[in-house]
Computed example of a mutant assay.
Amino acid sequence: MSGSTEGGDEPFRNASPLHDARYDPDSNQGLIASILEAVAVLEERPVAALREDPLHESIDAEAVEILLFGSRQDGGTSTAGQRVTFAYRGYLIRIHSDGRILLFDADDTSA
């Protein structure tokens, strides 16, 4: 898992996301569920089919929630511009502090 802030977009400068999803930290749906749903939509598979490759082995969702969304609730420092990128199932998945979830092809040389 790698984190980056503004200016750290060089690997994605020429890449177009394969899929764009949204996570709402104020909703009842957790971050893991939102990521799995985005991957399932892209792969045209049910979320249950992703159980063979557990997401928790690729990312610490609780740490990402605190890093990207925690300050909204506790009044701490701003998380604007923060994002986390990690690999899962052949995708590079980038989660932005505004809730955007972008999936890129990990094998795309422009990504």
Rank of each mutant, 00 (worst) to 15 (best):
V41F: 10
I59M: 15
R45K: 15
V41E: 13
S34P: 06
G70C: 03
V39G: 05
A48D: 08
R13T: 08
A63Q: 13
E43N: 10
S58M: 11
A33G: 10
A49H: 11
P46S: 14
R22T: 11
P17Q: 03
P46T: 12
A61S: 15
E57M: 13
V47C: 07
F69P: 06
S34Q: 05
P25R: 10
G30E: 12
E57K: 14
H19K: 09
P25L: 04
E57D: 15
Y23C: 03
A40I: 08
G70N: 00
S71I: 03
R22P: 02
P11K: 05
E44M: 12
D26M: 09
L18G: 03
R22Y: 07
D24H: 05
I35R: 01
A48N: 08
P17T: 01
E62L: 13
E52K: 13
R13H: 04
R22D: 09
L42K: 14
V39L: 09
R13G: 02
D24E: 05
L36R: 10
R45E: 15
D26T: 11
E65Q: 12
H19M: 04
I32V: 15
R72Q: 10
E43V: 00
G30F: 13
I59C: 14
F12I: 00
A33I: 08
H56K: 15
A40Y: 04
A61N: 00
Q29K: 08
Q73E: 12
I35N: 00
Q73H: 12
S58R: 15
A61Y: 00
G30C: 14
F12A: 02
L42V: 07
V47M: 11
E43F: 02
D60C: 07
Y23M: 03
P11D: 07
I66Q: 13
R22F: 08
E44K: 15
A61T: 02
S58Y: 13
A40P: 09
I59D: 13
E52F: 10
N14R: 05
E37V: 06
R22W: 05
H19R: 04
L18P: 06
N14I: 02
R51Q: 13
R45F: 07
S58N: 13
I35V: 14
V47A: 14
E57Y: 10
D24Y: 07
L55N: 00
H19E: 09
D74C: 08
L36T: 11
E52W: 07
Y23W: 05
Y23G: 02
G30Y: 10
I66L: 14
Q29V: 12
V39M: 07
